[in-house]
Design a protein around this nucleic acid. Structure first.
Lengths: 144, 144
DNA sequence: TTTATTTCGGATATTTTTATCCTATTTATA
DNA sequence: TATAAATAGGATAAAAATATCCGAAATAAA
């Protein structure tokens, strides 16, 4: 469904959020350990998230990645996905047609629309806060 | 969502079905032209579909690919997807965790389940017949 | 039986995604 | 100001997905 990069990105954001609640910045090393991902690759993804202003980075000594404590509830899964995988998952044709819309639909256009709208809704309605709190409470996990 | 291979596979099956209604076998060349895909790569995908018994191939002169006219309504999108992309789209964890279930869920487990179940239902309830008839009637298209 | 046609399948090439490495730049503190 | 600790980002490598090529095997018809 999502790229590896996107999977890492989502998990990284959750871990960053948890630490930001406690005013702690985290490094790619800590993040990679916590979400079980390759460190350097994860760092690249973090850069992309910073460029898209999903998270924040502070360079130099005592720096690291963080996210405004008060913004966590406003950050949606959709923003993370869009920053990393783009919006093809929303707009692209299910069968890869260049042009695919109501007037010139691919064979699965309508049926796909239902599923994709549901996915879109889910991503847009799921906040980082919600996901972070579930990890903190032990209701869900970032790695096996 | 799906791999390129799977996209080609679905479109190929639809085109084969249309021709099979008229007792006509088709070649990878014809298929690739009709669905706008690389011919040799498409041929590989057709082989996989044959191996998984989704479609049928007849070798030698006057051969080609076909599907039993009476089976077309029983062939579901899910079979095609499974033959090419496997069933990871059904069973795999949305965030790539090795182990992800009710007892040890990833952060998006429940929310993903809803979307994926919807996708699964859609794939299992959509028949090749339905898709082929819509192409024949001009209600949908295999290429741009 | 020979020939033409067609799928099968192995080998290889290209492109994209994933992953690693190393240096430059930034910045807080001593 | 010097130093140590961080992120930024370019270059490169490895793996996976996509794509191409070609000869082998099968088969219908002449």
């Amino acid at each position: 469904m999502f790229s590896k990069a996107c999977e890492y990105g989502i998990k990284a954001c959750i871990f960053i959020a948890i630490n930001s609640y406690e005013g702690k910045r985290v490094s790619p090393k800590e993040i990679a350990e916590e979400i079980n991902s390759p460190q350097a690759f994860t760092a690249k993804i973090l850069q992309a998230l910073v460029r898209h202003k999903v998270i924040n980075s502070i360079k130099g000594a005592y720096g690291g990645f963080e996210v405004s404590k008060y913004e966590i509830k406003n950050i949606k899964l959709s923003q993370i996905v869009k920053a990393i995988d783009g919006d093809n998952i929303y707009n692209g044709c299910g069968l890869g047609l260049e042009k695919c819309d109501e007037n010139h639909p691919c064979p699965v256009h309508d049926k796909f629309k239902v599923v994709r709208d549901e996915l879109k809704l889910m991503l847009e309605n799921t906040s980082l806060e919600e996901l972070a709190l579930n990890i903190k409470s032990g209701a869900s996990f970032l790695k096996t």
